[in-house]
Design a binder for these strands. Structure first.
Lengths: 206, 206
DNA sequence: CGTCCCGTTGATTCGCATCAATGACTGTGG
DNA sequence: CCACAGTCATTGATGCGAATCAACGGGACG
């Protein structure tokens, strides 16, 4: 597990940055000058199709790294919540890799992990019915403490719209699926509520 | 463009290998000991869900690199046609990266390119109707000379089953889409035929 | 207090999967 | 050399799942 480790990459020049909920961190096609590690909050990596449909490719949560692109941005990145990030200059990261093979290894590790996760996400989107995708997402969120945290603080507050765009379903279908899962008891009432505090709640009261 | 370049990675120990059509190159979850560059033929990278459904994540064609995994295999790899590959020891590749930053850069380049392609594939699968996905795939194959080569030789011969599993549709839907596209004239008759010579045709008469 | 956005719920439609049958082709064995 | 089974592409008929369209309620904010 890399998440939470003190990273070799921190030897590259880096400093903290913040973004407000909903703000663009970078857009697809931009020149890539930095990569990021999430400290607090949640970031969505997404693509907008020609038809205007948005597909969220990945949620980056505390401990995650994103934004490693060789030239142009693979995807757009937006703040799902207010976020606190560590910004690492790509130039200095590449320099570091030239001298420190452990850093290069770490990049490879992250890349392959991200690829594997995305590949499995494709498989789910392609072959799981909507309700199973929703159940999977909530199980995922529960595992990562993104909803229904025991003490009730530090909730991720991902909007249904974002979840739907991640799962490639409509908000209506998401809503219906949640009701069915609740009736089955597969999802606690709290989880549903916690994830729904979306309209404008801050990430953390802090 | 990396495809076709003489690669810095070739400084790592490597040698040619061959696989027959349909044979497993590596399976998901295996320890990863090597990466590959495609010389001739076509390889599919795929995942098999719990339900038994197969999702093809990517086709690797001549010039492409695949199999860069940090520990275990991300996906399975199988030969779509008879293939000729260059096998690069992962161990020596990593050693090379420790001393040669250009090699590390090349790995990053490949990783981010593969990620971008997969991300866009997700977007297409999620938001394009079946017929548009099929049209896109044939356009893609045409661009890469994978079907309807002018002289008729060196055809890739991807089975409809494989194309369907790549596009996340059934072979029936693929067949119907092809007929409609033909009637529209969007796809030449030849392309359709060429891609269908699937049962046991060799990659190239050579 | 009124407006806007979001989540929810219902009614309907549509696209694609599924089920089923046929024909073409390959390789096999009598 | 021909009958055979096996696989794959194709086509048709049917059903289901999720999108779409539409309406309502509630909280946030000006």
């Amino acid at each position: 597990m890399l998440r939470g480790d003190v990273s070799t990459l921190d030897q590259a020049t880096h400093w903290p940055v913040r973004f407000k909920k909903g703000h663009l961190i970078y857009d697809e096609g931009e020149l890539s000058e930095a990569m990021y590690r999430v400290r607090k909050g949640c970031v969505r990596l997404q693509i907008t199709g020609q038809n205007g449909a948005r597909q969220i490719i990945r949620f980056a949560i505390p401990g995650d790294i994103f934004g490693l692109c060789s030239d142009r941005r693979n995807t757009a990145a937006e703040a799902v919540t207010n976020v606190e990030l560590i910004r690492l200059s790509l130039h200095s990261v590449m320099e570091l890799c030239a001298t420190n093979s452990a850093a290069a290894m770490e990049l490879v590790e992250h890349s392959t992990q991200a690829y594997r996760d995305l590949a499995h996400h494709v498989e789910r989107l392609a072959h799981l019915p909507a309700i199973d995708r929703v159940a999977w997402l909530f199980e995922f969120m529960r595992k990562h403490g993104m909803c229904g945290g025991a003490t009730g603080h530090r909730r991720m507050a991902i909007s249904h719209r974002d979840m739907a765009d991640y799962l490639a379903i409509t908000p209506e279908t998401l809503s219906r699926s949640l009701r069915i899962l609740q009736e089955r008891g597969a999802i606690g009432e709290k989880q549903r509520d916690s994830a729904c505090h979306s309209s404008n709640g801050a990430v953390a009261p802090a």
